[in-house]
Amino acid sequence: MNEQRRQILQMLSEGKVTADEAERLLDALDRQQPEPPPTPAAYPKARPKYLRVVVHSEEGGSDGPTRINVRVPIQLLRAGVKLASLVPPQALLKVNAELGKSGVPIDLTQLKPEQLEELIDQLDEVTIDVDDPGAKIQVFAE
């Protein structure tokens, strides 16, 4: 019990204030009380800024293990998507034809920048771990 609450109750017991007045004072005191600090779970999770790819291979040849560490700003992926939207449709048709010849029948003209944006938005949750006896690959957002 804090000091102010104790004083109000003291005044009530001494008859200086009525029960109604004491109640109003206590209510006013409750309203003045600061809200408890939010728990860590209440804070929104910070959005990752980078996509990181780490490759560690023991089969790097005679020189020793190979390590690759790539950190790509997610903003750069977004910028790349916007840049890709400038590619003229004729070029996309040519790419489609070449992809088809290579056995990858993907129609890039159907791929909209909004869909790619949505894909990038979902990268926050991406975690890929590949554990192989000779190599380890990790892809994650940080």
Partner: peptide, 22 residues
């Protein structure tokens, strides 16, 4: 505009390759 966006987003990018002695 597209190039500007890419350049603006570049800081923070890292590429490290460590292959034994090189």
């Amino acid at each position: 505009r597209g190039l500007g966006r890419v350049v603006w987003a570049l800081p923070g990018a890292v590429f490290d390759l460590d292959d034994g002695e090189t």
